[in-house]
Design a protein around this nucleic acid. Structure first.
Lengths: 345, 345
DNA sequence: CCATAATATCAAAACGTTTCGATGCCCAGC
DNA sequence: GCTGGGCATCGAAACGTTTTGATATTATGG
């Protein structure tokens, strides 16, 4: 008996059939309490543990959850989606799943490349973080795998999603600036086609509108390709080149806010005295950069955690139900915002 | 034909046996070029792809690599090992492996808890990051799985390891301070039992010794439990309480350096004018904190990458060979160090 | 030209589970 | 006393590959 014990060994020692042992292992079927207990005893004695691949083959189940992220988001420094991913790793453990990570390009052609774990039937459900090609999503749908979207949304198709309360976050941010006396509040957007950014933009406009503040178009820079630090710098540059004279900037995320700060500093403006600035996401750097950035806190790990719960629910559910969760946000006031010194305008 | 094609379908359509098709798939055995090609053609036509669990069951192989991290290191904020982990995720993709992550406590009792992927035979090799219980390591050894250690080392047992060039890094750091005219250079250590910290400590002592600098024991604080920000703060406090009058501090890692900075600032000392400080690791915060921290850069993602290469090599190798890699380090001079203003002593 | 070796292919067994349908049993209901 | 139905258990098939050993064919060397 050099080999690891198999379910066969357990059955033999317990004097029962394979099927009964299997039923005990999976807590299923009608097994008498006495039998159940004696099987469990034998399992303990032999230190038996079922093999994942055998189990997978027989039950068409993998015990894994696929995590899909677009390549551009999984850059070394990406502080946002990476956190969500780590959140899923934590939570998966408690549900006895493992996370398989893959990245995908912006394009998707099922004849060209399909994530390996899909081809190999190696996942029971999928978590998609951020924006990916919709063809990929419908391809996964056609495989019948449960999908949970994180920080992304698709209008027509119905999928469970874990979303940021972007509208409220952006509203909090702009109201904070308004309450400090700012009126000429610029918006710096990045990739405005991402649903999250779109929402933040609209909430920005709405909040100003409700407050009776009307600004020229030049106060909104929304044609930047990348919602990144570099994008923030170039957006800030164009903002000021356009002739706008903001006293505050609301950036669509912390990366862009940091990019703006970089530009402002390079032009000798001081933050927050000359320009106040608010970000969104509360990535780790934000609390260390100088001045510490006022921002909207998003619970990134929490989003990953919820995503795992959702996808596990879907895997176990017989009936397909979609659930959309909006995780709450919080305004974190730090040093990059201060009351407007002298009221102009 | 509603189902996914199996290897059987391929064999039938190609007019060959299962075995031959399998040989083609795995690029093995003697298959005539013509046959090989026609099989590949059929595979393409049917869009066939082998199933992971079936393959796993038959070949006793999982296609996964286990990543083990101690719980305390996988805290939400842990910026060091998390990076190594992400590095492995990247690299694994290129080798057609997936990474399964698990955390373990400081204690290890094989009768109590064993990582699930070991019980389920769901990994082909193991990467261990940082310090974990040695009993766990020998338990894995007894399973016959290849192990690669990252940022950890065990004297007696021989395992492949990916290590930081701690000696050189610490030497660079201290020499940098010496070259700026500092002599009273304190060392703040944290968990001195971790091999990496030990090495840094010894290199610190050696470098001072070579330079003919001799300091009292009070300049070394090495009895802190945690190599963390909090540990840094409390170490700094005790350093100054001991009567030492350092003009510079070499902290065993960035977290501790940041902790020290926190203490120094709270006591109204200015960095680097009153006290220069050097860290180790170059975590992301270090380039954003004020003043930007001078430190030793460690290529964390690179370490993860190398670890994957090593473990994949070991998996494929018939003969067990151990390889130790020291990844190079680099001194990054930022704002927290400056030449000593007036020479004392 | 024969013996041996290398090449190409195949049939069958093995991998370790889950699941399906069958079977016997005991008990409730009429 | 018979019938139908849940309960507990079982035997066998199924899951989709790889691997092993056999066999037929072709090449190689003396």
């Amino acid at each position: 008996m050099k080999h690891r014990p198999t379910i066969r060994d357990v059955a033999k020692k317990a004097g029962l059939s394979l099927s009964t042992v299997s039923l005990v292992i999976n807590n299923r079927g009608n097994v008498s309490p006495g039998t159940r207990e004696s099987v469990q005893k034998v399992i303990r004695e032999l230190a038996y543990h079922p093999t994942r691949s055998a189990r997978g083959l027989a039950s068409k189940t993998s015990g894994n959850i696929g995590f899909i992220l677009s390549e551009e988001h999984f850059s070394q420094a990406e502080p946002f989606y990476t956190r969500i991913f780590l959140g899923t790793e934590f939570e998966a453990r408690d549900h006895n799943y493992y996370i398989l990570l893959t990245t995908v390009g912006n394009q998707f052609d099922p004849d060209e490349y399909v994530p390996r774990f899909l081809l190999e039937r190696n996942v029971d459900g999928i978590i998609i973080a951020g924006k990916v090609n919709e063809k990929l999503i419908s391809h996964i749908d056609s495989l019948g795998l449960p999908i949970v979207l994180v920080d992304y949304e698709i209008k027509r198709a119905h999928h469970s999603a874990v979303l940021i309360d972007n509208w409220r976050g952006a509203t909090l941010a702009v109201e904070h600036l308004l309450s400090l006396g700012h009126k000429r509040i610029a918006f710096v957007g990045g990739d405005i086609r991402h649903p999250s950014i779109t929402d933040r933009h609209e909430a920005y406009q709405n909040t100003l509108h409700m407050a009776g503040v009307f600004l020229e178009e030049s106060y909104e820079v929304t044609d930047e390709e990348e919602t990144s630090v570099a994008g923030g710098t170039s957006s800030a540059e164009r903002l000021f080149a356009s002739g706008a004279k903001p006293t505050a900037i609301f950036a669509a995320n912390d990366a862009m806010a940091i990019g703006c700060m970089r530009y402002l500093k390079s032009r000798g403006m001081s933050i927050p005295q000359d320009i106040a600035i608010v970000g969104f996401d509360d990535i780790e750097i934000s609390s260390h950069i100088e001045p510490h950035l006022t921002t909207i806190r998003v619970l990134k790990e929490e989003m990953g955690k919820i995503a795992v719960q959702r996808v596990v629910d879907s895997i176990n559910a017989k009936t397909k139900t979609v659930v959309t969760t909006h995780v709450p946000v919080e305004l974190i006031v730090r040093e990059s915002t201060v009351a407007l010194a002298h009221v102009e305008d």
